[in-house]
Design a protein around this nucleic acid. Structure first.
Length: 890
RNA sequence: GGGCGGAUAGCUCAGUUGGGAGAGCAUCGGCCUUACAAGCCGAGGGUCACAGGUUCAAGCCCUGUUCCGCCUACCA
């Protein structure tokens, strides 16, 4: 320990760097694989390896860090498992872009070389987000850091795939899926984002073969007509009841296609005629299956028209749309065009319009897994907080559809399925087979598709802990205590982890799921690069310090509402950090190098402010623990804020200054010093989870403590310290003293009397006990209200030139001999009585209501009566004073 | 189309079994009081979106309306 004095201002940057390095060196984030202590574990939502820290990460990780640091102070064996996600499509896109800037593309490199390049890229840039998490103060067990493409996790992925395949829960099939023509891969339904666009509805006449009339169909995507293989009408549609024709001519393609009847057709939409394109629409695909229609793929995987599109072949799909419309127009078959806003699917990775496309893909049969995942929450095995999200969770799981897990990209877990060139047999296995188990041929070709990234992240809670091996880590930490995440990945990730966790571990992956808010900009808009409204957390930390930023996030994290981030708020909390710093600075200035000797904390030996602050410390400790245990971060943060600033600084420190300056004697100083030390020490421990850096810095200047504050125990759990307790008497006495002081200050302020002017005050109360109390705390009142004289007396003559206030049954007079402004005082009293009058009227009305007296609980009635009595007493006293002053003026 | 959330002080938001409307910031007035002017002391400011209902009593419970935001959906 160098000096115990703090610098005048808190300089976050150097402090943050120093202590983070210290924590890492001392291995203070490390979990014990085996321990007698209670386990507490969280797996981090793994950020994309290509990611940079944004506000969402910051909030998410600060909340996790608060919980982990809090649980450590409570003595738990804490594991916060960190890692990153290989983010297949996103990462591949990033690296491809990088290649493009060098004039290369992945096909030139080939699959193997490309994957090597991604690994190189990952090695070079993939650590960025991890370092940014460290900057945030995240106390993850970094020695256990995992990556979804690591060997161990890849083995878990393979095992899960093989098991599910053998259990019949994974299958391969030819289906309509969402296809991104830019990423060149299939997407799961979830990965498609719908956006309402102003489109058009085109009405096209499909003529009968005999040339007389036809069926008019309506479509938003006219280019797909080239792949139509039927026209459907509803079997009971009267408009087509007498229809003789059994086919129409598909315009532009000049080919005959059948008219079919299917109840799927909505008679109320358009003309009641539906064009059927099995290869490019999921509904049409099913209709096609029902009626045995061929599927003609006219839009290729690259988004341009195929040979099957005839003379439109080679055109880009939207170019083709125009061309088709023009051609139809020219042929006189375009009946009309209507404006038609409708939802259009976009790729969640690159925002390209997604094309429903027919192809061979792998799917997970989701229903059996989803049912168990929903049940676990229904039975309360896993609790979702706040509860409102349960409905959303159930809704999705109860209506789940099979999950398309294959992706036509290179970066990811290649599907462990091999097809025999000899006999076409498919082998799915953990290890690469040498020969075909059926025919013995060694001509085996592995499936080129890779798995959806979310397939591997679904295993995260147990794959990171060593599964499929039965590790100590799993035994100690699975199921995890809580998952902290935002609702936008409730389906993508949370639900799927539930499905996989229950299926493979036989146990839910987490006891609680805490869903926090999304961070938005000041105007409530989602932050996005394209809108240019992103606030970079790193620059916020640079300017205001990490602790201020963290405290802001925690204070904003009220359940069920989005967070609107503004730098102004962070600035406000920087002031709080500074306030704490200075309070500590003041405290330390008064302490010797050694820890204050332990004092007797029984009420008899302590001054009122000492008793009071210890009682308040006990109170805030309880609030803090209760709030954090229930994930009410904002409540914990604001309780601590309130305590430090408005109780500890504003009242306690001011109250004990004379004692610290040894105006009351050495013994009193020693006692107060101990209380001050204890309060500061415990407050730092309570604050540490929120603002770890500044608390650690102060901690090391505090005498009588050892090691890091990270190893300190929560006040209620520390056997080496006398227990804190509630002291209602001290709180009541202090409240009275504070009322008197505030009353005097109020008069001073309202009458514009400078603080430098000492005043004389008198309190008159009929209550002898109260008089005794006030007399006993005379020094405190004189000091904090800046008085020259303070008299306590029974009710009697009122001082002549005095301003008055009423505190409970006591009248307070502040002598203003020579400086009183009578008009001002009259105004002040009138304002006060006016307010009281209004309130009294309301209460009186209540009390005169028979129904109220009849039906309200006795306690409520009594409370109302008491209040009425004390208010009218106060009113009367103020009125007397008002009359007195008026008389003096007149 | 279905569902969810929000509307409380100038701004941003708390308000958990219905029983005296709160905080931070901003504003106004007074202070360089030897930890902190990133501060201290004091003050003003709200028909709790609107309309009904239940109740002795509603910001809170019920119904409806308006305006925002979000999620979800295979009507071309």
């Amino acid at each position: 320990m160098t000096t115990h004095l703090l610098d005048k201002g808190y300089e976050p940057r150097e402090v943050e760097k120093r202590w983070y390095a210290y924590w890492e060196e001392q291995k203070l984030f490390s979990a014990e694989e085996k321990s007698d202590r209670k386990s507490y574990s969280i797996v981090i939502p793994p950020p994309n390896v290509t990611g940079v820290l944004h506000m969402g990460h910051a909030l998410n990780n600060v909340l996790q860090d608060v919980l982990c640091r809090y649980r450590r102070t409570r003595g738990d064996n804490v594991l916060w498992m960190p890692g990153t996600d290989h983010a297949g499509i996103a990462t591949q896109n990033v690296v491809e872009k990088h290649l493009a800037s060098e004039g290369k593309d992945r096909h030139q490199l080939g699959r193997e070389r490309f994957i090597e390049t991604v690994w190189e890229w990952r090695k070079k840039y993939g650590g960025a987000i991890i370092n940014q998490l460290k900057r945030l103060g995240a106390s993850c067990d970094w020695d256990r850091e995992r990556f979804t493409m690591d060997e161990g996790l890849s083995r878990a992925v393979r095992k899960v795939f093989v098991d599910l395949y053998n259990q019949g829960l994974i299958y391969q099939g030819h289906y309509i899926i969402n296809w991104c023509v830019r990423c060149h891969t299939a997407l799961a339904d979830l990965e498609v984002e719908h956006e309402e666009l102003d489109g058009h509805l085109y009405y096209i006449l499909y003529p009968f073969p005999n040339g007389e009339g036809g069926v008019t169909v309506a479509t938003t995507r006219p280019e797909t007509m080239l792949g139509d293989t039927a026209v459907a009408i509803h079997p009971e549609d009267d408009r087509y009841a007498g229809l003789a024709a059994e086919a129409v001519i598909l315009p532009l393609m000049e080919k005959e296609i059948p008219i079919i009847r299917d109840p799927y057709v909505d008679t109320s939409f358009g003309t009641g005629g539906l064009k059927v394109t099995p290869a490019h629409d999921p509904n049409d695909f099913e209709i096609g299956n029902r009626h045995g229609l061929p599927a003609v793929k006219v839009i290729g995987d690259d988004g341009s028209m195929t040979e099957a599109a005839g003379r439109f072949a080679g055109l880009e799909r939207f170019e083709c749309r125009k061309a088709v419309v023009d051609a139809l127009e020219a042929a006189g078959l375009l009946r009309k065009i209507e404006d038609h806003p409708h939802g259009v699917g976009h790729c969640y990775r690159c925002n390209t319009v997604v094309e429903p496309n027919l192809s061979e893909q792998w799917f997970v049969k989701a229903k059996p897994l989803a049912d168990k995942a929903a049940d676990a929450v229904r039975k309360g095995e896993t609790k979702i907080v706040p509860e409102v999200w349960e409905a959303t969770y159930f809704d999705w799981l109860d209506n789940i559809r099979d999950w398309c897990i294959s992706r036509q990209i290179w970066w990811g877990h290649q599907i462990p399925a091999w097809t025999c060139g000899g006999c076409d047999e498919m082998t799915v296995a953990m290890e690469t087979p040498a020969v075909c188990p059926k025919c013995g041929s060694s001509d085996l070709v592995q499936e080129t598709d890779v798995l959806d990234t979310w397939f591997s992240s679904a295993l995260w809670p147990f794959s990171t802990m060593g599964w499929p091996d039965e590790t100590d880590l799993l035994k100690t930490f699975y199921p995890t205590s809580v998952l902290v995440t935002a609702f936008d990945i409730l389906f993508f990730w949370v639900a799927r982890m539930m499905m996989m966790g229950i299926h493979f571990m036989g146990k839910i992956p987490f006891e609680d799921v805490y869903i926090h808010a999304i961070v938005r900009d000041e105007d409530g808009k989602k932050m996005s690069k394209s809108k240019g409204n992103v606030i970079d957390p790193l620059s916020v930390m640079d300017r205001y310090g990490t602790d201020a930023f963290r405290f802001t996030l925690a204070a904003f994290a009220a359940q069920g509402r989005d967070i609107k981030m503004s730098e102004q708020r962070v600035e406000g909390y920087r002031h709080f950090i500074n306030k704490l710093w200075n309070a500590a600075r003041f405290s330390l200035m008064n302490m010797e190098d050694a820890a204050p000797t332990e004092a007797d904390l029984s009420a008899a030996r302590l001054s009122l402010p000492d008793r009071w602050i210890l009682s308040r410390l006990h109170g805030v400790m309880k609030t803090d623990a209760g709030a954090l245990d229930a994930y009410r971060f904002n409540e914990a943060a604001s309780a601590l804020y309130q305590f430090i600033w408005h109780e500890f600084c504003d009242w306690y420190l001011e109250a004990v200054k004379p004692t610290l300056y040894e105006e009351k004697g050495a013994a009193e100083k020693a006692t107060t010093l101990f209380v001050l030390w204890r309060t500061l020490k415990d407050a730092l421990i309570l604050l540490h989870p929120f603002i770890p850096f500044v608390t650690e810095e102060i901690w090391h200047k505090l005498p009588g403590v050892e090691g890091s504050i990270m190893t300190a125990r929560f006040p209620a759990d520390d056997p080496s310290q006398p227990a804190l307790r509630e002291d209602p008497e001290a709180e009541a006495h202090m409240a009275l003293v504070m009322d008197v002081i505030t009353g005097i200050r109020n008069i001073r302020g309202e009458m514009n009397i400078a603080p430098s002017v000492s005043l004389a005050a008198t309190v008159q109360s009929p209550n002898e006990a109260k008089r005794k109390l006030l007399a006993a705390y005379r020094d405190l009142i004189v000091n904090l209200a800046r008085l020259s004289e303070f008299e306590v007396a029974p009710p009697g003559d009122q001082p002549p030139s005095a301003a008055a206030a009423v505190i409970e049954d006591a009248a307070l007079f502040v002598s203003l001999e020579g400086i009183i402004d009578f008009d001002k005082e009259i105004q002040r009293l009138e304002k006060e009585t006016g307010k009281l009058q209004k309130e009294l009227k309301g209460i009186a009305k209540k009390l005169s209501n028979e129904d109220f007296l009849d039906k309200a609980p006795e306690a409520v009635i009594q409370k109302t009566r008491d209040r009425h009595e004390s208010l009218s007493e106060k009113q009367q006293k103020l009125q007397e004073n008002l009359n007195r002053i008026r008389a003096m003026v007149a």
